[in-house]
């Protein structure tokens, strides 16, 4: 099951050139671009591991593509996303976020039903991948 999170997730995978153009857009708007990775794709897992610092002072997006490729070398089998943080007053939040790398096999999520008091059923989702310990997921 293909993970649909963030922007462009219903499009085919972005090429390096696509990434560069999108990151350049963020840089031109004055947003700090950063690269993050994770092997826990749960939709509520918002804090991924940071790959280096956010790039505050790079005027050109080639640096972002360079870092994405460096991250792919180390964590090629995991999810990698590029984010753009807008520090301006009133926003102070993520303005862009898109996945640039995903594992070969994405096993998807299972629905977990929990029986509760008085025939109540609680539902949650769990990634099949996270049943393996951290570091051992996605081969």
């Amino acid at each position: 099951m293909r993970l649909r999170q963030g922007q462009f997730s219903f499009l085919p995978d972005l090429t390096d050139d696509d990434i560069r153009v999108q990151a350049q857009y963020a840089i031109d708007n004055g947003w700090a671009v950063s690269v993050e990775f994770t092997d826990d794709p749960h939709p509520r897992n918002t804090y991924w591991e940071m790959w280096g610092h956010p790039m505050f002072d790079n005027p050109d997006a080639a640096a972002v593509v360079y870092e994405v490729n460096e991250c792919r070398k180390a964590h090629g089998g995991k999810y990698i996303r590029v984010m753009a943080f807008d520090a301006s007053h009133g926003w102070e939040s993520i303005r862009m976020s898109f996945i640039v790398n995903r594992p070969k096999e994405e096993p998807g999520f299972r629905l977990v039903r929990q029986e509760s008091a008085g025939r109540l059923v609680r539902y949650t989702v769990e990634s099949y991948a996270t049943r393996d310990p951290e570091g051992a997921r996605y081969a």
Binding site: G52, M55, D57, N58, P59, D60, A61, A62, A63, Y66, E67
Partner: peptide, 14 residues
Amino acid sequence: APKTKEVLKKAMGG
């Protein structure tokens, strides 16, 4: 290595 890469990234596009 991080220091050199930081400088190189800053210079990219220029």
